[in-house]
């Protein structure tokens, strides 16, 4: 279990990262926290010719709050976001979901953008990004673009990122007043990837449910006002619309059933929280 050989680019600036990406394209992988990539290197599932270190520049390790968003640079570790003062009030969903990501020891190095880039269908941070309708900021040497979360994630470990693009940051909207958030997840053990993870967001505008771990990407559903009557039917339709699969940890039927049950649970929690905020 030792990695194959690779060249290593230790950039001194963002520009150098982008230059290296242009030069090496799909032969290269960005390495951020390495908490996903290094296991893959060790197992030789991944054999990039070049690694470009995107997690060592202090410039890129900033969390900025602007225009109702938390903009998180690509060198920001998950622990750094977790420890952001007042994260619970800035974005309760993140505060509730982050403790489910692996363990203290992996969050100390794993980055937020790395998790987005990797697009694991069970991962919490992509799920939150979709639930909150956040954005991904991509940049090449030539151009920068911003993609909505729902357009970014295409499938299992597949995103709309082009090989020469760096995810330079992601933006999570901060909590609007009067909005309720809830998050729940079922894994086999503490710290494991979710079998099913659900997030609900409720406000005067309506209720949404986002489900991760079941389909190839986390998927978000608008439930209108999310009224109690008809909720079970809606959740049943959601459960069936997801392309659930059997694996060694749980059956597809289990994933659907948990989607229904936990879905209902978080929707009620989020609505209750929204009601509390409004009153």
């Amino acid at each position: 279990m030792k990695p194959a050989r690779f060249s290593f680019v230790r950039p001194q600036s963002r520009q150098e990262i982008l230059d290296a990406l242009t030069e090496h394209g799909s032969d290269a992988s960005v390495i951020a926290g390495g908490q996903t990539l290094v296991p893959m290197l060790n197992m030789r599932l991944a054999r990039p010719k070049v690694l470009i270190d995107a997690a060592r520049l202090p410039d890129l390790a900033r969390i900025e709050e602007e225009k109702g968003e938390l903009r998180i640079g690509c060198a920001v570790r998950q622990a750094q976001l977790e420890q952001l003062p007042n994260l619970v009030s800035k974005q309760p969903l993140l505060a509730r979901a982050i403790p489910f990501i692996g363990h203290v020891q992996t969050r100390a190095r794993g980055t937020v953008c790395g998790s987005i880039a990797h697009a694991d269908p069970s991962a919490e941070l992509p799920l939150c990004l979709i639930a909150l309708q956040g954005k991904v900021h991509l940049r090449t040497r030539r151009k920068a673009r911003t993609v909505r979360a729902e357009d970014f994630f295409l499938g299992m470990m597949s995103t709309g990122r082009e090989p020469d693009e760096l995810i330079e940051a992601v933006s999570y909207p901060t909590a609007a007043p009067g909005t309720g958030f809830a998050f729940q997840e079922i894994g086999r053990r503490h710290g494991d990837f979710a079998i099913v993870a659900v997030a609900a967001v409720a406000s005067g505008d309506g209720v949404s449910l986002t489900v991760g771990g079941v389909d190839d990407v986390a998927r978000r559903f608008d439930l209108g006002a999310g009224r109690d009557d008809g909720l079970d039917d809606a959740l049943n339709d959601i459960a069936w619309s997801l392309n659930a699969r059997d694996d060694l940890h749980a059956s597809a039927a289990y994933r659907r059933e948990i989607t229904r049950r936990l879905g209902s649970h978080v929707i009620h929690q989020a609505k209750a929280e929204a009601a509390r905020c409004q009153s």
């Binding site: 599932l45 694991d120 269908p121 499938g155 470990m157 190839d216």
Partner: peptide, 11 residues
């Protein structure tokens, strides 16, 4: 990669 295999193959 059992957990991800089928999804990945599908991709």
């Amino acid at each position: 990669g059992g957990r991800l295999l089928d999804g990945a193959a599908r991709v």
